Simulated assay, not measured.
Amino acid sequence: MRMTLHTDYALRMLIFLAVRNGRPCTVNDVAIAYGLSRNHLIKVAQGLSQLGLVETLRGRAGGIRLARPPEEINVGFVVRAMEDDKALVECLKADGGACAITSSCRLTGVVREALAAYLSVFDRYHLRDLVRNREALAALLGIASPPESDLVGQPGAAVHEGG
C-alpha cells in the first residue's frame, strides 16, 4: 500500500503540533518548516479539525493546535481516516471492479489480510510515540522551546509531576 501525500502531510502536521507542546501556530509555519504547499496543508488542517484532532483558533493570535494530547491520538486512526481509497487491487473497490475471476479469486483474501497487517502496525502507535525525540525534532523544524509556564493547561502540553 502506498500512503497518499494527504495522509503523510497530516501525520507531519500532527508531529509539528505535538512538538510545539500545545502552543498554537499557523498552517504557514508548518508549510515553511517542511517546505510544503500551504494550500495543500490548509486542506489537511481542515480534515484534521473535522476529525477532532486539531482545533482552529480565530483572531489575531489564532492558528491551529492539537485538540487532544498526543497520547490520545492513534496513528492507525489517522491513517484510516485520511486515506480515501484502501482498495489495493481492483476487486476490493466498492463496485467490485471488473476482474474476470473476482467471484472465485483467493488473492482478494490475501490482499485483505495484508492490508489489515499494514494497518495493525499503525494501530500500535500514538502521536506521543512519534515525538519522543521532541528536542531533536524541534531543532530540525526550527521550533523554539517555550518556558515551562507557557505550557500549563494546554492540550498536548507535557505534564510534569513532582515538586
Rank of each mutant, 00 (worst) to 15 (best):
S149T: 14
R112C: 12
P155N: 13
A144R: 10
S149R: 10
G109W: 04
R128Y: 08
A157V: 03
A116V: 06
C105I: 10
I143G: 00
Q154T: 07
L151E: 08
F122I: 01
A114Q: 13
P147Q: 05
L130A: 11
D129Y: 04
P155E: 14
D150P: 00
V121H: 06
R124T: 11
G153L: 01
R132I: 10
A136K: 14
H126Y: 11
P146H: 12
A139N: 07
Y118E: 13
Q154Y: 04
A114R: 09
G142H: 10
L107Q: 12
C105E: 11
N133V: 04
L115W: 12
T108H: 07
D123L: 06
R106F: 06
G156K: 03
A139C: 04
L151V: 07
A157K: 00
P146A: 15
V152C: 01
R132S: 06
A114V: 13
E113T: 12
S149E: 15
L130G: 05
G153Y: 03
G109E: 14
A117V: 07
S104L: 11
G109N: 15
A157D: 01
C105Y: 08
A136W: 07
A136N: 12
V159S: 09
V111K: 03
L137Y: 07
G156P: 07
L151H: 02
R132A: 13
V159Q: 11
E113S: 14
L141D: 04
L107P: 02
I143F: 02
E113K: 10
A139T: 09
R124H: 07
A158E: 10
N133T: 09
L127V: 04
G156M: 04
E148Y: 08
T108P: 00
L127D: 00
A158Q: 15
Q154V: 06
P155C: 12
L137S: 08
R106I: 12
D129A: 08
L130S: 08
R106Q: 14
D150A: 12
L127P: 01
E135I: 05
L141E: 02
D123I: 02
S145R: 15
A136Y: 02
I143E: 01
V121P: 03
N133G: 04
S145V: 09
E148W: 03
N133S: 13
H126E: 10
G156S: 08
L140S: 15
L137E: 07
I143H: 02
